[in-house]
Simulated assay, not measured.
Amino acid sequence: MSDSESDKDIVLYDLDGEVAVITLNRPEKRNAVSDRVIKALAAAVDRAQEEAKAAVICGNGKHFCAGLDLAEHVKRSPIEGVHHSRSWHAVFDRIEAGKIPFFSALHGAVVGGGLELAAATHIRVADATTFFALPEGTRGIFVGGGASVRVGRLCGVARMTDMMLTGRTVSAEQGEHWNLCQYVVGEGEAKAFAIDLARKAAQNAEMSNYSIIHALPRVGDMSRADGLFLESFVASMAASSPEAEERLNAFLNKSAARLSHPGK
């Protein structure tokens, strides 16, 4: 870490109404994730859970995040490497399984640990400059920030294996096809688009959002019968909240907005 870097905020935090915007701010290093970045990101994530109803993670400069800071990684002993990996897991778990939904606005490199961070968010918006990669195989290392669990489930083990063995890069359009992102927008438009989506999610009932981000991943890990059983209990709990009753009555009274065809 340089002296100049130590004097600035490497993770920025802004509360925009009910949406927290968390920005990786290490553009000269392509927002590579150092130990200090992980600690700052953890603090920002915890703050967002307390202050906001939804959050967006983005990056300053030309890239979202080029992954692990390799300069730090080569100096670790095996046990230090385990603890380092687990520290990433702890932060990314708080994103994926916290109180509020997280969105990521992606551009440029979403590589290695950058893809692991993006995969921990619930909705990923990529602009046209985005490319995804897992180059760990070519670097003589292995993923350590949760990719073997999250990325493999998003795009499939065969595709993840291809990315790691060959160093293949994947465009934003291909990434959408592979489920690495859910939206592809024009260059420079991802942040505003993600914030708009986060604002919409922030208007949902708190119990609904919590159920969506916690129940759906668990149902995916269960047998069919167990998943349906859990669904019944979560549906009952969500529907019994005062906010659900108010919203359902608004729909029945035709005072709530109706859905329309996306092309109209």
Rank of each mutant, 00 (worst) to 15 (best):
E116S: 15
K8Q: 14
R150N: 05
G167H: 00
I195E: 12
L252V: 10
S85W: 12
R159N: 12
L228S: 01
P262Q: 05
A239T: 06
K53T: 09
V19E: 13
F103N: 03
R247H: 07
S85R: 14
D7G: 14
E187C: 10
C65P: 05
A225W: 06
H73I: 07
L252A: 11
L68N: 02
R258G: 09
E176K: 15
V125F: 02
R124I: 07
P242L: 11
R124V: 04
A238S: 10
S34A: 09
V184M: 01
E176H: 10
V151D: 01
A48R: 07
E231D: 07
T169D: 01
R218S: 08
V56F: 04
F233P: 01
D69Q: 14
N31Q: 06
A109E: 10
V37Q: 00
G61H: 10
F131N: 11
L230F: 14
I38C: 02
A172K: 10
R76N: 04
E206Q: 09
L70R: 09
E50V: 08
P78W: 07
R159S: 08
R26E: 09
S211Y: 01
P101Q: 13
P135Q: 12
P101R: 10
E173M: 09
A119Q: 05
I10W: 00
A225R: 12
A172F: 10
N60G: 06
V143D: 00
K264V: 14
E245D: 11
M1F: 07
H214T: 13
N209F: 03
V91K: 03
A55Q: 05
E116T: 12
M237T: 07
A66R: 05
N25F: 03
R258W: 03
G17M: 14
V56K: 02
A66K: 04
T129Q: 11
S34W: 06
H177R: 15
E189S: 12
H83L: 15
D16H: 13
G67N: 06
H261W: 14
H73C: 07
A66L: 04
T161L: 03
K191Y: 10
R124A: 11
I95S: 02
V11A: 04
R26D: 14
E187Q: 08
K8D: 08
A55N: 05
N31A: 06
W178H: 15
K254I: 05
V157F: 11
V170G: 06
E51N: 11
A119G: 05
S232W: 09
F132W: 04
S211V: 11
F131A: 07
L106T: 00
G227C: 07
M160K: 01
A192Y: 07
G227N: 05
S211C: 09
I141M: 04
S85Y: 08
G137E: 00
K62V: 12
A66F: 07
N204D: 08
C58T: 15
N209H: 01
G112P: 01
L41A: 00
E245H: 14
P135K: 09
Q203T: 08
G140E: 01
